[in-house]
Every structure is written in C-alpha cells, then in structure tokens.
C-alpha cells in the first residue's frame, strides 16, 4: 500500500471526523497538487440543507474560487490534482470530477448505493464521454476507518432531531467483512 496515499487519506479521515463532530454524514476529502493540499472539505448536506453539498463539491468550489490556484481559465482545472476521499465518490461527484479533468481519485470504502467509480456506475472510465478524459479511481485506502466512522455516525444520537431518542441499547458492530 502506497504510503503517500495513506498519508493523504489520513488527512481526509480527519475531515470526516470533523463532519461527524458536526452531525454530518462523515465523509471527508483533500485535493492534492504538487505534494500540497490545495483544498480540504467535508460533507455539509445538513448544514446547507442541500443533499448535493458533498465534500468533493465543497472542496471544488473552494479551489475554483481561489484565483491563485487557477490563474488562467482552462478547460480542466484539476488535470494535475489528485483527490483523496474517504468514501467512493457518488455518481454526481464522479461526473463533476470528470468534467473538471481530475487526474486521479484515491478512496477509502466503496459506496453500494451511489458509487460512481464502479460500485453502481463507472462514471470515471467505463462510461464513454465525447469530450472528458477518463480517470483512474482506486479504493481500499483506510477502508476500515472509513466504514467505522460511518457506523459511528449511524449509531450516534442525533441531537438535532426534534424528539431525541435513546440509542443506548444499540451496539457498534466492529467486524468488517
């Protein structure tokens, strides 16, 4: 397992922890260019009341709003950038990344419900696109951590909910198949 990838994935995990602390679905990501993090973000779907505000789109907005990162208008502003994200990008994000010409994606665990890099649909490369180049997406980095943090989220009491309910009798499953 590539240690550089592991290093950046741990940064992404830290963002997922931040999401968990904010009662968001714990998914985090960092965008790396030239051995430097140029943006990091996490899910904000609850805060922004918008089910499309995934970590990747949050970070992309950050990158594109910073003119120093993309001094000249270019078709593919992410062509020298690698994304590290704790969960396989969903179909929406996978398409967004391809439209921006991302160089490569490294992710933690797969996403059986929305995964856009092969789990549900191969938006990154299997699906043909008349213009945008395909990109490589590799999973398995910090996979167990990524799954565990999701489980921790689903077992946590949601203090935002109107009628809090005790989940004290729920058990955190630690086995990962």
């Amino acid at each position: 397992m590539n240690s550089t990838h592991l290093h950046w994935m741990q940064e992404a995990m830290a963002m997922a922890e931040e999401a968990l602390a904010a009662a968001e679905v714990p998914v985090g990501c960092v965008f790396v260019r030239g051995e430097k993090v140029i943006a990091k973000a996490r899910n904000r779907t609850n805060q922004l009341r918008n089910a499309t505000r995934h970590a990747e789109l949050e970070a992309i907005d950050e990158i594109l709003s910073d003119k120093t990162l993309t001094p000249q208008i270019t078709e593919y502003p992410l062509s020298t950038t690698t994304l590290y994200v704790t969960v396989e990008p969903c179909i929406m994000c996978a398409s967004a990344l391809r439209q921006l010409g991302i160089r490569e994606v490294i992710y933690g665990c797969g996403n059986e419900r929305f995964g856009g890099c092969g789990s549900v649909l191969g938006v990154n490369s299997d699906l043909e696109h008349p213009a945008h180049p395909a990109y490589k997406a590799t999973g398995g980095y910090c996979r167990e951590d990524a799954i565990m943090i999701l489980r921790r989220f689903y077992i946590t009491e949601n203090t935002n909910a109107p009628v809090p309910k005790s989940k004290g009798n729920r058990i955190l499953k630690t086995e990962i198949s």
Partner: peptide
C-alpha cells in the same frame, strides 16, 4: 441533464 445533474436531482428526491 448531465450525469452530475441527474444524480443531484436524484439526491434531492
């Protein structure tokens, strides 16, 4: 809609 937008519509139910 493109794939990104189609999925955004799906996410938004």
């Amino acid at each position: 809609p493109c794939i990104m937008c189609s999925m955004a519509l799906l996410h938004s139910r």
